[in-house]
Simulated assay, not measured.
Amino acid sequence: MDSDSNEPSQEELFEHHKFTAAKGQEPLRVDKFLMNFIENATRNKIQQAAKNGHIWVNDAIVKQNYRVKAGDEVKVLFEHPPYEFLLTPEDIPLDIVFEDEVLLVVNKPAGMVVHPGHGNYSGTLINALVHHFENLPNNSSNRPGLVHRIDKDTSGLLVIAKTEAAMTSLAQQFFEKTSEREYVALVWGDVKEDEGTIEGHIGRNPKNRLQMQVFPNGEQGKEAITHYKVLERFGYVTLVSCRLETGRTHQIRAHMKYLGHTLFNDERYGGDKILKGTHFTKYKQFVENAFKVLPRQALHARTLGFSHPLTGEVLRFDSDIPNDMGACIEKWRSYAKHA
């Protein structure tokens, strides 16, 4: 599967995607095919694109029920608000852990998207930042203040640059792997080793572009290194600490799945199914209740450390595990004691 996705410039009113179906592609309706490959693209958006004549297969306009076959070139065009609209200031409260004249550290709640994009035009961290702060510097992708990002349904700490010099310094620290980033994750299964390191390039899954995949021989993707340590064992699930040496998209989610320990309730990677334990009624009901308590992947960016861009002082911040994840952990802790 090859893909070109172009984010809109300030002048563009459309978002373009182009895919070539892989050799092993079984016939699949084009709307379902596109749902597998475009993040945040709802069925309604795809249907609207089809209605507007904005889906092409091999350069011919098709309806949403067209069946994609191996080798087909699929193009779709979504109407997109102007880029300025995506940066609309919104009075959204921020949980600021630290702030000075050149940077701030925020604690992002689960469910908040970091930056606007297709399907998430408002309510993002960027919308909040441009309301609360003027003249934030743009990063290389024109995202005001952003040095790094975490997934929508991951909670935890992010550093934001308030000046160009701070952006440069912090970005360099992340690039040179001198920053400290530690996450807490609840994963399926009893992790065999008490600690270890996962090394394996990470790139897009050729069969599902919404997933990242580990390529252990480095034939695709980019280098990725995660150091993990077991914090607590609950039998069918394990609480682990993950320290990032690199910062790839979905790094912990993909690396832990590759290790055989998918994150608990990580829908995109299959963690929203019972992966360990029985399917007997009582256990099944317990797991389903745990999913309801934590309706997202069990991942929290707990610790963030870096050198201050002006003073060189090493700063280190910690954030408490949020209530939903804490309640889920407590349920498993109690279950393990009585199992």
Rank of each mutant, 00 (worst) to 15 (best):
D4R: 09
Q10E: 09
F14I: 11
H17M: 10
A21Y: 01
Q25H: 05
L28P: 03
R29D: 05
D31W: 06
K32P: 02
F37N: 15
F37R: 15
A49C: 00
A49Q: 01
G53L: 02
Q64N: 14
Y66E: 08
K69S: 10
D72H: 10
L77R: 13
F78P: 00
P82A: 08
P89F: 03
V105G: 08
V105H: 05
K108D: 10
G111R: 01
V113N: 02
V113T: 14
P116A: 04
P116N: 02
G119P: 04
Y121P: 01
H132C: 13
E134F: 10
P144T: 03
V147W: 00
V147Q: 00
H148E: 14
D151V: 08
T154Y: 08
S155C: 11
S155R: 05
L158K: 07
A161D: 04
A161R: 08
K177I: 09
T178S: 14
S179F: 11
V187N: 01
W188D: 03
D190C: 00
T197P: 01
G203F: 05
P206A: 09
N208G: 07
R209H: 14
L210K: 15
M212K: 15
F215A: 07
P216M: 11
L231S: 10
C242Y: 12
I252E: 09
M256F: 15
L259W: 13
E267Q: 08
R268W: 00
R268M: 09
R268P: 00
Y269Q: 02
K273D: 11
L275V: 06
K276C: 11
H279V: 10
F280R: 13
K292W: 02
A301F: 07
A301W: 03
H308D: 10
P309K: 15
T311N: 09
D320F: 04
D324N: 07
W332L: 11
S334G: 12
